[in-house]
Every structure is written in structure tokens, then in C-alpha cells.
């Protein structure tokens, strides 16, 4: 229905031809912007509301009772619903370790929480459809479980900064919140996120729209198609410095795929953008020695690349 309205506006009122580059670029831009902003507001509100029931303190209490592997699975799942901002990564990490949660389980949480973020999810759903969004979440969870399990096996506790083990936490506090509080919190969260990402969404969709209209079809197939083996690691490398810009990157990825980029490569690229962020690494350096930080990044990067190759092999 929305597509009909946009078509009427661009092709009818403005008199542009659907076959012209300008017409199809503008149609793409208006259609996607409207859809994405609506989804952002509605879904972020819903997610914030759900998250208000899962404060990190509660997640910690669940995880501290579990054995290792089961802990990894639950940590990856809870990573999706527990509100997490990289500025509280340090207290969260210390809180988990101090409560006796194994290092590997803690990492499963730290990988899943930023990777399966709400903005990435909405952009994927809105632009690629629910199937790709589900594939993205499922792969993200699997990578989080596996990375945490690997780090747990490696016995790297000695590469956590010593002071972390000396901290004794007090009794955790779980606030009682009324429905009113939760709704206020959810509205506040929508404002915060939309206020932060809207310029990236617009710029991303504008670039995407431009390429959609002007770049020749399939021009990427030669460089980033399924047969190009180095495309996946290259995509991950390019993705790392683009942290937290999922909103701007995903519309561009959509067009890159239209123009011939393989699905797995695109998926790996988006995961690298969300899961491997430099500011988070700098923050985590306060609690992790450099070696552990490097291992953490490498394990996750390898997991993302394997996922990329897997999907390139499966989806033709």
C-alpha cells in the first residue's frame, strides 16, 4: 500500500518515469525512508518495553546458576533482551565475573548483545524481509555461543586484569518499576535511538537510492560475487571501522546485493559492523589484557567469516 502511495507521488504527481534513473532512485528513497522510520518507532518501543523486564542484574542472577555450555546458550539469548550500552560494558563485565559466571559465558553475552541490536534488526527486516532478519539473528546467536565456548575452553582467565578479581560487589539492586515507568522508559529509548540514528538512515538510504538508480546492474558480481574467495575477509575488515552505523550501512548493503554482492559476504559485512566495534574494544581494554582483547576480536571475526562462507556456499 505504501509502495502504491509512493509510486503515485513520484511517477504520477511528479511525472517522473519509473524507467528513469532519477525516478527510480527517488521512489526507492521515499519508500524506504518512510518504511524504516515507521518500523524504527514501533519496534524500538516494543523492544524497549520487553527489555525493561530484563535488567542486567536479573540476567546475572540467571547466568550465575548455570553450567558452562548451557550458560553460553542462555547468555547469547539473554544478550538480545538485556539492555546494553557500551558505556556500561566494564561494570557489567566485572559484575558477571565477580558473580562467578565463567569467562566464556560472559563473552557469549558480550558478543550477542551488540551484534543482535534492534536497529540492525529493523533495518534488515524492513529492507530485506523477515527471512534475512531471522538468518541474521540465528547466525548471531550461534557465533556468540561458539565464540564464548571457544574462549572458555582456552582458559584465558589470567589475561583478565588482576584488579577485576579483587572487586567485591555489593548486593545487586533490582528496581521495582510500574507500567508507567516502563512506558516512559520505552518512549525515552525511542527518542534516544531515533535521535541518534536518523541522519545515518537518511544518508544510507540516499546513497542506496542513488546507486539503485545509477549504478549498472551486476557491476559488483565480478568483485564480490560468490566465487570471489577473498571478498568475505575483506568485507569484515571494511566493516570493523564502521561500528554502530548499522543504520547507515544496511541500506547500502541492500543495493550492493542487488548489484551482485553475494549474500554471505553481505551478511559478514553487516555482522562485522555491529559486533566488532573499536570504541567497545577501548572500553574493554580496562578489564582485558591486550592478548585477551585480540583473541576476543579474532575469534568473533573468524566466526563471522565462517558464517559468510557458509551462506555463500548455501545460497546461490
Amino acid at each position: 500500500m505504501w509502495q502504491g502511495v509512493v509510486d503515485w507521488l513520484v511517477y504520477g504527481r511528479m511525472g517522473l518515469s519509473p524507467n528513469s534513473a532519477l525516478g527510480s532512485a527517488l521512489d526507492f528513497f521515499i519508500y524506504d525512508t518512510g518504511k524504516i522510520f515507521l518500523l524504527l518507532v514501533v519496534i524500538i518501543f516494543a523492544i524497549a518495553f520487553v527489555r525493561s523486564f530484563f535488567p542486567p542484574e536479573k540476567t546475572k542472577r540467571v547466568l550465575e546458576k548455570l553450567p558452562e555450555f548451557l550458560g553460553n546458550i542462555l547468555a547469547a539469548l539473554l544478550g538480545i533482551v538485556t539492555p546494553f550500552c557500551s558505556c556500561s560494558a566494564v561494570p557489567l563485565f566485572i559484575g558477571f565475573i565477580e558473580a562467578g559466571i565463567p569467562l566464556g559465558v560472559t563473552f557469549s553475552f558480550l558478543v550477542s548483545s551488540p551484534m543482535v541490536n534492534e536497529v540492525a534488526l529493523i533495518m534488515l527486516w524492513g529492507l530485506f524481509g523477515w527471512k534475512i532478519a531471522v538468518i541474521y539473528i540465528a547466525s548471531g546467536i550461534v557465533i556468540a555461543i561458539a565464540s564464548g565456548a571457544v574462549i572458555g575452553r582456552l582458559k584465558l582467565e589470567k589475561w583478565v586484569e588482576e584488579y577485576v578479581y579483587k572487586i567485591r560487589g555489593g548486593q545487586g539492586v533490582i528496581e521495582k518499576r510500574s507500567l508507567r515507568d516502563r512506558i516512559d522508559y520505552s518512549f525515552g529509548y525511542v527518542g534516544e535511538i531515533v535521535g541518534k540514528v536518523w541522519p545515518y538512515v537518511l544518508v544510507g538510504i540516499a546513497i542506496g537510492g542513488f546507486m539503485h538508480g545509477y549504478a549498472p546492474a551486476n557491476f559488483l558480481a565480478k568483485y564480490a560475487g560468490p566465487g570471489v574467495w577473498y571478498a568475505v575477509p575483506l568485507a569484515v575488515l571494511i566493516g570493523v571501522p564502521l561500528y554502530s552505523n548499522a543504520a547507515g550501512v544496511i541500506p547500502i548493503v541492500k543495493v550492493l546485493m542487488e548489484k551482485g554482492m553475494a549474500t554471505g559476504t553481505a551478511l559478514a559485512f553487516m555482522m562485522a559492523v555491529t559486533a566488532l566495534s573499536l570504541p567497545e574494544a577501548i572500553i574493554l581494554r580496562k578489564v582485558l589484557k591486550p592478548k585477551l582483547l585480540i583473541i576476543y576480536f579474532s575469534v568473533v571475526a573468524v566466526g563471522i567469516m565462517l558464517t559468510g562462507y557458509l551462506f555463500n556456499a548455501v545460497i546461490k
Binding site: 557489567l92 559484575g95 572487586i167 555489593g170
Partner: peptide
């Protein structure tokens, strides 16, 4: 101070 924050049982700031 992270130690002081943790000692009060706070994980999310």
C-alpha cells in the same frame, strides 16, 4: 571509581 560502583551492587550505569 569502578570499585566503588561495584561495591554498591550496581552493574548498569
Amino acid at each position: 571509581e569502578i570499585e566503588a560502583i561495584m561495591a554498591m551492587g550496581v552493574m548498569s550505569t
